[in-house]
Computed example of a mutant assay.
Amino acid sequence: MSASKRDELVQRALKTFYRGGFHAIGMDKLAKETGVSKTAIYKHFRTKEDLILATLRLRDEQFRNWLMRRVGALATDPKAQLIAIFDALGEWFDEPDFRSCMFVKASSEYQDRTHPIHVTAAEHKRLLLIYFTELARNAGAQDPESLARELLIVKEGAIVLAHLFEPGEVASDARRAALRIVNLELPTG
C-alpha cells in the first residue's frame, strides 16, 4: 500500500471510528467500511490499536488546525478570540456528522492512563490547553494558565452536552459561561 493509500485508509478509519467507536468496530467491519482488506490494513499497522493511534494523531492535527484557523477568522482581538473558541464550537456542533469528541471517546474506551491511546487523547487536550493559555496570555490575563483551564473545562463540557442535548442551546450556554469567566478575569475599562 502506497503512502497515499495509507493516508486514505487512516482518513476512512477515522470517520468509521468517530461514528462507531473503537471497541465496537471490529476489523471485519473496518475493512468493509474503509474498502481496504484486513490483509492490506495489517501490512501498514501491526494492530488495530496502531491504526487507532494513527487516526487520533490525524484527528488531533485536523481539529487543532481547524480551531486555530477558525478562531483567527472569527476574531482578531485576543480577548474576543477567547470567546470565538465557543463560536467555532457552535459551528462544529451544527455539522450533521457531529458525534462528540473522539478523544473523550478514546479515553473512555481505553481507561488505563498509561495506555498509548489514553495518553494520545490526553496529549490532544494538553495541546489545546497550551493554545488556550497562549490566547489568555495575549489577552493580558493575570493568571493565563487558570483562565485557560477554566475555558477548557467549559469547552469539554459543552462538547459532551452538545451530543446529549440540543447543540445550539448548549453552544449558546457555553459561550455565555465563557464570556462570564473571561470578563471576570479581564474586566473592561
Rank of each mutant, 00 (worst) to 15 (best):
E156S: 15
K105L: 09
K155N: 11
G35D: 08
K105I: 03
L184A: 13
P144A: 09
G21F: 01
T47M: 03
Y42D: 04
W92E: 14
A54G: 01
L147W: 09
S100L: 07
T47N: 03
F98Q: 04
E150V: 11
L89P: 00
E95Q: 15
G189I: 06
K48M: 07
M27Q: 14
K43V: 15
L135D: 02
R64C: 04
K32L: 12
K15Q: 13
P116Y: 04
L179D: 13
Q81A: 06
E123R: 15
K32R: 11
F17N: 00
L51T: 03
I181Y: 02
R19Q: 14
A24P: 03
G157I: 07
A178Y: 01
A31T: 05
V154R: 00
S4D: 15
T76D: 15
R12K: 13
R64T: 11
A13Y: 02
G35P: 06
E91Q: 15
G189D: 10
A75I: 11
I41Y: 01
D112L: 05
A141D: 06
K125Y: 11
F103K: 05
H23G: 07
G72L: 00
N138T: 10
L51A: 02
R12N: 10
T39F: 08
L58H: 06
L152K: 06
I52R: 00
P116G: 08
E91A: 13
A40C: 08
T133H: 06
F93A: 02
D94P: 00
H118F: 05
K48I: 08
A158H: 03
L151A: 05
R175Q: 13
K48N: 05
R64Q: 14
D77F: 07
T114W: 14
G72F: 04
A121W: 02
P187W: 12
A122P: 00
G90L: 12
D77P: 01
F17T: 01
K38C: 05
L53E: 08
R59Y: 13
R99L: 06
A162C: 04
E61T: 13
W92S: 09
C101K: 01
L128M: 13
V182T: 05
K79F: 04
L14W: 09
D94E: 14
A75P: 04
P144N: 12
E134D: 14
E169V: 15
L58G: 00
S108M: 06
W66R: 12
R70H: 09
I52L: 02
W92F: 10
